[in-house]
């Protein structure tokens, strides 16, 4: 394993295996379905499984693997984009966590209170903006959102789980 798949292909390999697991799950779940309802899913499922297996082979550090890679991509150069420094991984995790926090906060408290708080923190704490600049930008954006959706369109933006619970 250590030698078969070069380090730069590890991440792709994991993704391939996850996709493979998804295909296999769909195929397995099809067992109990009406013959017509499973016709396409099973067909596409096996087709995709085959493609994923080819992709996995193409990433192995074997003569055959390299040949497959060249055949499909039309060039012998390996994709280098995934060879990125480890320090970048930290900023990626940071980005994903920070955006996930926003989604969860919206789910709990709704759009209107969360957006300004999130914007302000993003600009002031994580960015290099002055407090005044952050406040003004946040206020302008909130005014646009409120005026456009709530005022002009008379549309109720999601109010959040907490508000719903309190209302009950």
């Amino acid at each position: 394993m250590e030698n078969l798949f070069p380090r730069r292909h590890r991440a792709s390999l994991v993704l391939d295996l996850l996709l493979l697991a998804f295909c296999v799950t769909i195929i397995a779940l099809s067992a109990g379905l009406d013959s017509r309802a499973k016709l396409f899913p099973v067909l596409v499922g096996w087709f995709t499984v085959a493609l994923i297996v080819i992709d996995i082979v193409a990433q192995s550090d074997t003569g055959f693997g390299r040949a497959v890679f060249t055949f499909f991509s039309g060039s012998a150069e390996a994709e280098d984009r995934e060879v990125e420094a480890r320090k970048e991984a930290r900023s990626i995790v940071h980005a994903i966590v920070w955006i996930s926090i926003f989604v969860v906060a919206v789910w709990l408290f709704g759009f209107l209170p969360v957006i300004p708080v999130y914007m302000f923190i993003s600009m002031r704490v994580f960015g290099n903006n002055s407090t005044l600049r952050s406040l003004i930008t946040t206020a302008v954006i909130m005014l646009i959102i409120w005026a456009f959706f709530e005022y002009a369109l008379d549309y109720t933006l999601y109010r959040g789980l907490v508000a719903e619970l309190i209302a009950d």
Partner: peptide, 30 residues
């Protein structure tokens, strides 16, 4: 030049699109 992976993502997308109500047979799948 990324045909193989384009097809894999496409196949994955098709499988995702099959989730839920199938309107010809009325079956709810996956």
């Amino acid at each position: 030049d990324r045909l193989l992976r384009g097809l894999i993502v496409g196949g994955f997308g098709l499988l995702v699109s099959f989730i839920g109500y199938e309107s010809v047979t009325g079956e709810v799948r996956y």
